[in-house]
């Protein structure tokens, strides 16, 4: 910064702008990071949600000085270089550009972008959880948490217009409720039997499109007990807006009790369910015409 300022020998106006910017940014950026950050979605109910919140915080903090720079510059120029209407018929100085300023600008934006892209990719690399997003049928190639092998598998099936859930490790029992044990890696496999939906567990920070004939895997590890909202995030027709339900994160024993209850409850119809598969063929004649 120092060398750059020397070289540019900023005009007094520019020096003033830079000082105002610097002061405001130094004050505002930490405030934003500390006070706005925790308000950002989706909260900290899971590792994925936490990671997303972190990203949002970093980006908000990063954008703050940029907003301030633009605002300070524009407002400063409006105030100091406006002319009363028709009072001044002259022109401004015929400046056509300055390579050093342009170069600096390009360099700064390139640096920001490289930082952002690196930071964003970091959470998607192997070993991380893939940030709770859908990662296609075969996430091993992309990102698999260490605990993936032992993860609790939950199949999420979207259809017009409701969600159902199957637990392959519990006999493939199919329920309309989603209950998850806390602090246990979960592996959602999202699919659809008609049109495209999107499984959105809001507070868990999970979102994965449900596409017919595709299994879309998303990892998450809930860390807080409580309920979370589930909505459909891809337009799927008439009652898309009502394709919503709630899920619950409970303690491991409570989960065991619940799943045992579900198995008893649905046992009579279990044999009529199609066998557990990663995807279910849409009905060939599902075209409504």
């Amino acid at each position: 910064m120092k060398g750059f300022l020397d070289k540019m020998r900023p005009a007094p106006e520019m020096r003033r702008i830079l000082i105002i910017w610097f002061v405001l940014s130094v004050i505002a950026t930490p405030l934003v990071a500390i006070f706005v950050g925790p308000l950002l979605p989706p909260g900290a109910a899971s590792d994925a949600a936490h990671g997303q919140q972190q990203d949002n915080t970093v980006m908000t903090a990063l954008v703050t000085p940029i907003v301030i720079a633009l605002l300070v510059y524009f407002v400063y120029s409006f105030i100091s270089w406006r002319v009363p209407r028709e009072a001044d018929v002259g022109d401004g100085p015929p400046l056509r550009g300055s390579p050093s300023i342009m170069g600096t600008w390009v360099a700064v934006t390139v640096m920001i972008v490289i930082f952002l892209a690196t930071w964003g990719s970091y959470e998607l690399f192997p070993g991380e959880t893939g940030a709770g997003g859908g990662q296609g049928p075969d996430p091993l190639a992309v990102a698999t948490p260490a605990a993936a092998k032992t993860a609790l598998r939950v199949q999420v099936i979207g259809q017009q217009w409701q969600w159902t859930f199957r637990y392959p490790s519990f006999g493939g029992v199919e329920t309309t409720q989603l209950v998850l044990p806390v602090n246990r890696q979960v592996r959602f496999e999202v699919t659809s039997i008609d049109v495209v939906h999107s499984f959105w567990a809001i507070q868990l920070g999970v979102k994965a499109d449900a596409v017919p004939d595709e299994a879309n895997v998303a990892f998450v590890k809930p860390v807080k007990l409580g309920t979370f909202d589930i909505r459909c995030a891809e337009l799927c027709g008439l009652w898309h807006g009502h394709m919503a339900t709630h899920g619950q994160v409970v303690s491991m024993p409570a989960f065991q009790r619940w799943i045992a209850g579900q198995r008893r409850r649905w046992a009579p119809i279990q044999k009529y369910l199609p066998p557990m598969k990663r995807t279910y063929m849409p009905q060939p004649d599902y075209r409504a015409g």
Binding site: S77, W81, V83, D88, W105, V106
Partner: peptide, 27 residues
């Protein structure tokens, strides 16, 4: 996607440079 911010930001710099010591008429 993030790279697109860079050429887009050129346009912002153009506007800011043009306002520098200008004679701004707020029409």
């Amino acid at each position: 996607t993030e790279l697109i911010s860079i050429p887009t930001a050129f346009v912002f710099l153009n506007a800011m440079g043009t306002l520098w010591k200008a004679k701004i008429h707020f029409t």
